[in-house]
Design a protein around this nucleic acid. Structure first.
Lengths: 348, 348
DNA sequence: TTGTATGCGTTATCAT
DNA sequence: ATGATAACGCATACAA
């Protein structure tokens, strides 16, 4: 009674053997009713096993199952971070989708360090998941991918599937947003509001998807007969702070005739807004701003941000589909993205 | 050459046996050099094993290790969601801390449904983690905890540890923020700015920690000689939208003489701001607002929000410590929280 | 120090 | 339909 809690009867977990013995059946029989798929067990036995399991509080040892089966109903998600609202939304969508098809998901965070990503993939391989999903991440420095690719190839050779989401720096299946078309339509939309003079913020780190957003935006403007000079496309560090600093270090004359700033992500758009405000400019009074991603946690931003909405659920669904099907779908699937015009671009 | 990729030589994963054979040693020897703890292997053998492992691309099967060892270096984190910025920050902190002590962490999301929480805990028990951390979650309805408690007790009986973070609705170790003192100091701070007339937004769902924030705030005001009438403390639904609706349905006379609205979370504070703005009030011109949590992703909110900062890293550290130590630390540890005064409460 | 034998909890293959 | 028995990949007690 006076003994501390954790010292009370440290018994080992209840096993299938315990349940079988308690129910007076063989262990394989217990296995069949509790975890087996094809049901072919006498009802009388079945009930006794279930009763015993419930009474003893049995829970299947997932590790043992994985060893015996040679596979686990788990997919591994590798993501750059989970406190970032964009990636956490992506992770949430993938987890939701995975759960709906009865899959567990383990999350690993790279913190945007490529060496860490390699270590993680190596360790994940030891978990023997059904699939590894590498979700969009921009590394701060160009990274050597050879070792990573080799590791992933080895994983594939043993029956695992590798799916890339919103990134395409590796030679594996990718499901991505239609960055080009989304940005193009956005450009058309804002051009239709009368904006003629633009400043574009790309990514200092070379990232294919991000460049597509720039290219698409430029094309969209061209569609509407608007040209954007090369020096009006700048490539700051790929972050909120990078965008802010880029704006702050712009010379006044350049900024003066800019009507709208387009940043390749909402995050950078917000950094740009911070920079513009620190220079005494008001949004959207003095200058309009648009981003890309449509991060939901930005609903409280004033003015509400014009951006491109990406269908995270659709991407997640596609990713899980590819992670679980054996078909070879080598086509690079893109998921639609469409512009959402809000208060930050009221029109001229 | 024309065969599709996944069909090429679907060989099984490389096992310890393969490595041993390839290195010309016994399997236990390979085990000792690759995964064993106490090193007592001949250098010549050691190198051959390492070379073989590297050449074959060996990765330890974590499930098999878990089965053989009877435990895994994994902790399970149960959290209500990961797209919510508050919880994702909490999850990130816990993962970071866990990683720093060489622990894997598996995340399970409850979506604020208590039945799901029970299912998750049951399944997690099958993963045989070192500890289960249930991180702060407010359920939308009072939930029956008996089954959950029993499940967790069973888990403890087999040597597992249960740690609650920022919640205290279950009879287990809790590490929480000092909600009371944090709110109290915040109240003193804003009272010192001259505010005298308050509206407090609590939680419609009974949550101990949230009520402590109300109580602490009231006490802090009392410390400064400010009384708050009972009808100026309302308990809307515990969400952004709940706060917004509560503000919008307030009668104008009540709202007229309110100088500052305090909400028990930043999330609700933002909902309150949305509600106030929809009524044509400006923040902080017409009315000041303060929250609690200091969510980092709110840096782009204008005006910046006065709130109470909680030391997530300290909480995470404490939680991991409790998850990994065998001591019985039954005291309910609280981690400091301190007010941060910003633009949303400039003073009267 | 190294290898042999055994065990971990489960599933799968066989007889029965 | 059910129950022995052999895997699964790894760790460890024990023997050499």
């Amino acid at each position: 009674m006076t003994e501390t809690h954790s010292e009370t009867s440290l018994r080992r977990p209840v096993t299938l053997d315990d349940v079988a013995r308690h129910a007076g059946v063989s262990q394989p029989t217990a296995s069949r009713v509790l975890n087996g798929s094809t049901r072919k067990v006498n009802d009388a036995f079945r009930e006794r096993v279930l009763a015993a399991a419930s009474e003893l509080g049995y829970t299947a040892n997932l590790s043992a199952q994985a060893v015996a089966r040679g596979s686990s109903r788990t997919i591994a998600l590798v993501i750059s971070g989970i406190s970032d609202p964009y990636f956490s939304a992506m992770a949430a969508a993938i987890m939701r989708q995975a759960e709906s098809v009865g899959l567990r998901v383990s999350i690993a965070v790279t913190d945007r360090r490529s060496d860490r990503e390699l270590d993680l993939v190596r360790e994940i391989r030891g978990q023997q998941p059904l699939a590894i999903i590498l979700a969009g991440t921009g590394f701060l420095a160009p990274h050597p991918v050879d070792a990573l690719v080799e590791e992933l190839r080895r994983y594939e050779e043993t029956g695992g599937r590798v799916v890339l989401v919103s990134r395409s720096d590796l030679p594996f299946e990718t499901v991505a947003f239609d960055n080009y078309e989304g940005a193009r339509q956005l450009a058309r939309g804002v051009a239709g509001l009368g904006y003629r003079s633009y400043l574009l913020l790309g990514s200092g780190t070379a990232l294919l998807g991000m460049q597509q957003r720039i290219d698409g935006f430029v094309q969209g403007l061209a569609d509407e007969g608007v040209q954007v000079a090369a020096d009006r496309i700048i490539y700051p560090e790929f972050s909120w702070d990078g965008a802010r600093r880029a704006i702050e270090s712009l010379d006044a004359s350049t900024l003066r005739d800019v009507e709208l700033v387009f940043a390749i992500t909402d995050d950078m758009a917000l950094g740009a807004i911070a920079g513009l405000r620190s220079r005494g400019l008001s949004i959207p009074g003095d200058i309009a701003v648009a981003g890309f991603d449509d991060i939901t946690t930005l609903r409280d931003i004033v003015p509400s941000l014009t951006t491109v909405h990406v269908a995270l659920d659709a991407v997640a669904e596609e990713a899980i589909y590819r992670a679980t099907t054996d078909d070879d779908v080598l086509t690079r699937k893109t998921v639609p993205a469409y512009p959402v015009l809000r208060e930050s671009t009221p029109g001229v």
